[in-house]
Amino acid sequence: MSRRTLGFLAVGLLLALLVAGVGSYYASSSPDGLEWSAEEEGFGDTARDSATADSPLADYAVSGVDDGRLSGGVAGVIGVLVTLALAGGLTLVLRRRSGAASAAGQDAGGQDAGQQDAGEPVAADRAG
């Protein structure tokens, strides 16, 4: 992976951590569209607590941490990192590999993958 791509990903992750860790404290705490509609139309009381309602992170708060800013921020950061690990791990497993070992084991498919990767420096040079 090029340094430019790494830098882009690092900035994106930093933004996500800032939004979840700091920005979320300032989010609206009003009921969301579905909750509000359910109350308006009289089926809000049919909601049941989730089996995970006792989770130490339930409702985006760390149980035992009294400071709302810290509690919500830590919960948000944990959520971002867990999501990144799970989604990133899954997509890395699923991706087409362009390494020499896998290319040797494939025919036309391997060639296609190689071509696409060969295209990256061109695009990167133009944008940079």
């Binding site: 990903l9 992750l13 920005g23 989010a27 609206s28 990192l81 890395l92 696409q116």
Partner: peptide, 26 residues
């Protein structure tokens, strides 16, 4: 998904999780 897009996909999921915490008033 290839070598370039797979890391972006992981980041996008994490980013969506973060932005979903930002409820805006309507």
């Amino acid at each position: 998904l290839d070598e370039r897009t797979a890391p972006l996909a992981g980041l996008t999921a994490a980013f969506v999780f973060a932005v979903q915490m930002m409820n805006f008033p309507v």
